[in-house]
Simulated scan of single mutants.
Amino acid sequence: MMGIGIAGRLVIVTGGSQGIGRAIVERFAQFGARVVIADVDEAGSETARQLCEEGHEAHFVRCDVSSYDDIQALASEVQAKHGTVHTLVNNAGIFPRADLLHTDEAFWERLMGINLKGAYLMCQAFVPGMIEQGVGSIVNIGSTHARSGDPAAMAYAVSKGGLITLTRNLAKGFAKHGIRVNCVQPGWVASEGETSRLRDAGVDPDKLFADVSARMPMGRIQTGQDIADSVIFMASSLSLQVTGQVLTVDGGSSLR
Rank of each mutant, 00 (worst) to 15 (best):
N115W: 00
L101G: 02
K207V: 14
G252K: 03
G252F: 07
T243K: 04
P128H: 01
R9K: 15
Q133H: 06
G134Y: 03
V78S: 10
F174V: 14
G55A: 11
Q50D: 15
I138P: 12
I4T: 08
P217Q: 04
M122D: 13
Q18F: 14
S45A: 06
S239R: 02
G142F: 00
Q124Y: 10
Q222I: 06
A171Q: 03
L88F: 06
R220L: 05
V135K: 12
D99M: 09
A92Y: 10
N140L: 07
L247T: 07
L238W: 13
H177R: 08
I6K: 03
V249G: 13
G8R: 01
V127K: 08
E57N: 14
E77R: 15
G83Y: 00
C63H: 00
A98F: 10
T144M: 09
V127D: 04
R147G: 11
R180E: 09
G3T: 12
V184G: 03
S253T: 08
H59W: 15
L163H: 05
A175P: 02
S237Q: 12
P128V: 00
K207I: 12
K207L: 11
L247F: 07
V158P: 12
L116Y: 12
D200R: 14
Q79T: 15
R62T: 06
A155T: 07
L163Y: 00
F174D: 13
H82Q: 11
V135C: 09
D104M: 01
D211I: 07
Q133P: 03
A7P: 09
V246D: 10
A80K: 15
G136V: 00
M112L: 11
R215P: 07
R22M: 05
C52L: 06
T47C: 12
M218H: 05
I221K: 01
F107C: 03
S254C: 09
H86S: 13
A175S: 15
G251R: 01
I6H: 00
R97N: 13
H82S: 10
A48M: 08
